[in-house]
Amino acid sequence: MFKCMVVSQIVFYEDRNFQGRSYECNSECPDMSSYFQRCNSIRVESGNWILYEHPNYRGHQYYLSRGEYPNFQQWMGFNDSIRSCRISPQHHGSFRVKVYEREDFRGQMMEFTEDCANVNERFRYHDIHSCQVIDGYWMFYEEPNYKGRQYYLRPGEYRRYTDWGAMSPRIGSFRRLHHF
């Protein structure tokens, strides 16, 4: 019996509309600086990817699923810098996250199993200082309605907002990362 494995693949292009030098990637890459100078368009052939502005998975983060992104504004990019990437693992099952109003899991806590388009409406404030991702993979957004800076969270404990790469505790919305 043969088992078919889906290989994740993404292609980065230096110029808009899939022009210029390109670099194909099918695995996690902590530093892509030597492969291209800038990234102005991306084609995700398969898989779901988390892209980072700086090497070693630092800086602005972007979640991309299969599709074409002819310019960096299409993936809500702040600039044309992509320097590291990783594949978002497949998750089949439930989703569960606990968010806290204070660091180290203190203060008011709310548990979510669904997306939240507006944290302030549901949580009565927009600062999340710590969280525990129990099940699934989640994306936090700085603004309501899934806009602004993005933060990718895997299962684990985040004692303070800097643990998920944020510069402030402001979170406006968050959603589950489904893989289709």
Rank of each mutant, 00 (worst) to 15 (best):
S34K: 08
Q37W: 10
R38L: 10
R38I: 05
I42L: 09
I42V: 15
R43Y: 15
R43M: 13
V44P: 01
V44M: 06
E45C: 09
E45H: 11
S46E: 07
N48V: 15
N48C: 15
W49D: 07
I50L: 11
Y52Q: 05
P55L: 03
N56K: 13
Y57K: 03
R58Y: 10
H60P: 00
Y63I: 15
Y63D: 08
L64I: 08
R66D: 09
R66E: 13
E68H: 08
Y69I: 01
F72M: 04
Q73V: 10
Q73D: 09
W75H: 06
W75S: 05
G77P: 07
F78N: 14
D80V: 00
D80M: 00
S81W: 11
S81E: 14
R83L: 06
C85L: 12
H91L: 04
H92F: 12
S94Q: 07
V99N: 09
Y100A: 03
Y100I: 01
Y100N: 03
R102Q: 15
E103L: 09
E103I: 04
E103P: 03
F105E: 09
G107F: 02
G107M: 07
M109C: 15
M109W: 07
M110N: 13
F112P: 04
F112I: 06
F112L: 07
F112C: 12
D115E: 08
C116K: 04
C116D: 05
N118R: 07
N120M: 14
R122E: 15
R122Y: 13
F123G: 02
R124S: 13
I128A: 04
I128Y: 01
H129L: 07
S130T: 02
C131W: 08
C131F: 10
C131P: 06
V133H: 07
V133W: 06
I134A: 11
I134H: 15
D135R: 02
D135N: 08
G136T: 11
W138E: 05
F140Q: 03
F140W: 02
Y141F: 14
Y141E: 01
